[in-house]
């Protein structure tokens, strides 16, 4: 088993997550895709740590885990709030920050 094969798996997982973010319109699916991307990054870290036999990769994974946990809790709370106020989960309708400047 070569070290790049793990990184290739991580890259594929990351790109799949990115594809999900780009294609889906439902915020919940976008959040799920972001989780996949974070997970892929964690895989890359752990692989790098294993390659050199050092614990740092696993430590980084722990931080990513904590970050993902707080991100998901805030993100889901935002989803609840968005649904409550706009009665939709469609991100293409949540574009109130559009700059309507007329020239």
């Amino acid at each position: 088993m070569q070290s790049y094969s793990v990184l290739v798996v991580a890259a594929i997982l990351f790109v799949l997550g990115l594809l999900g973010v780009l294609t889906r319109r439902n915020i919940i699916f976008i959040l799920i895709s972001i989780e996949i991307m974070l997970n892929a990054a964690g895989v890359a870290f752990v692989a790098a740590g294993a390659r050199w036999g050092q614990p740092d990769g696993q430590v980084m994974f722990l931080f990513i885990l904590a970050m993902a946990a707080s991100e998901v809790s805030v993100g889901l709370a935002l989803v609840m709030q968005v649904y409550h106020q706009h009665k939709t989960l469609d991100v293409s309708k949540l574009n109130n920050l559009k700059d309507d400047i007329e020239v």
Partner: peptide, 14 residues
């Protein structure tokens, strides 16, 4: 800190 902020933020926003 981040987890704390996440908890408080989620509780507040949700």
């Amino acid at each position: 800190f981040l987890l704390m902020a996440g908890i408080v933020g989620a509780a507040h926003i949700g």
